[in-house]
């Protein structure tokens, strides 16, 4: 495997809140010391509860946010603290697919204008070439015939169709990396899968690397090569999807898997094991392992004192738990 597409080392993003004239600001430790790599043409799914820092991580990698600490490398180049004007090439190589198809398209732009804008910004092609690229992009997300959709306004499209347009817009600059932030969570069950398939096709056919943010482990299982589990701003486990699901090493991952039902009429006869409590505050996270207050196997004097580091316990399968082996 050659040089990784994206490589994060100790990436940290804290938000400052509530600072005032006489008050010291507090810090939300939304992403804390995360290291990972994403290869070209692979999908890494990032799974975690609401507020665990998934979106923040994705936005920081795309340099929509300024990292607090750590390093981001993109295709071998360090982009950690580049200024806006030096980021233009990254803006072309790395794209984002946001969660809400209803707000991720400008309602006043017809589809062709929405798709043309990135090309115009990067000065790519003349009118005719841009038009052709738009049609190709629409075709690649199965909005056929593309001419039919090119002149539609977002409000004339269903949620699934909009999300396809958003995917087409992300694809139009031929990016190498895409952060898809819950790309199907707002869509109907019946159309979800079709969007996920399109993303898979793009990944496989065009060799695009994906960071697929989701809170749905089942989706991650079917559409990603590797899965990373986030808990309270920390990456607690990461590994190939089968290995992570069949042999979860972190107690949080284990609990998460337990909590997810499959469609089965037997479910109703028993209660499902679930962790008590809630994820901790990111302003004042627990000492030691951030999971220890909810952990069923936490060991006093260890888990609440010492922060567990990410260790590779199986080939390519990392976990941050003192007791995992």
């Amino acid at each position: 495997m050659g040089e990784p597409l994206v490589s994060l080392t100790g990436l940290t993003k804290w938000f400052e809140i509530g600072g005032g004239m006489f008050r010291r600001p507090l810090h939300v430790r939304a992403v804390d010391d995360v290291s990972l790599v994403i290869q070209r043409g692979e999908t890494l799914a990032l799974v975690g509860e609401s507020g665990s820092g998934k979106t923040t991580l994705g936005r920081t990698i795309l340099r929509l946010l300024e990292p607090t600490d750590g390093e981001i490398q993109f295709a071998g180049k360090i982009v950690t603290h580049l200024k806006d004007k030096d980021l233009k090439w990254l803006r072309r190589k790395a794209q984002m697919i946001p969660q809400d198809p209803y707000s991720s398209l400008n309602p006043t732009y017809p589809v062709n204008k929405a798709l043309e804008e990135p090309l115009v910004i990067h000065g790519l092609g003349n009118r005719q070439e841009r038009w052709e690229r738009i049609l190709t992009a629409l075709d690649s997300v199965h909005l056929t015939p593309p001419e039919f959709f090119a002149h539609k306004y977002p409000h004339m499209l269903s949620g699934g169709q909009r999300q396809r347009v958003v995917v087409a817009r992300a694809m139009i600059l031929d990016p190498e990396f895409i952060v898809a932030d819950e790309p199907v969570s707002m869509l109907d069950a019946s159309v979800k899968v079709s969007i996920l398939r399109i993303l898979k096709e793009i990944q496989e056919n065009l060799g695009v690397g994906f960071l697929h943010i989701t809170h749905d482990l089942a989706t991650a299982h079917h559409f990603a090569e590797r899965i990373g589990i986030m808990y309270a701003g920390k990456l607690v486990e990461m590994g190939p999807h089968e290995s992570l699901l069949t042999e979860p090493l972190h107690p949080y991952t284990q609990a998460l898997i337990e909590a997810i039902p499959d469609p089965d009429p037997e479910n109703r006869f028993r209660e499902r094991p679930a962790l008590p409590g809630e994820p901790p505050s990111l302003v004042n996270p627990p000492a030691g392992c951030r999971f220890h207050p909810r952990c069923p196997i936490a060991r006093e004097g260890l888990c609440d004192v010492e922060e567990p580091l990410l260790r590779e316990l199986r080939p390519g399968h990392f976990v941050a738990c003192h007791l995992a082996e």
């Binding site: 899968v193 079709s194 079917h222 997810i260």
Partner: peptide, 16 residues
């Protein structure tokens, strides 16, 4: 998509 199965989910064509 089912967590405990490797059978791939199949989408329904068309729009609601």
């Amino acid at each position: 998509p089912i967590l405990r199965s490797s059978e791939s989910p199949i989408s329904i064509p068309g729009v609601p």
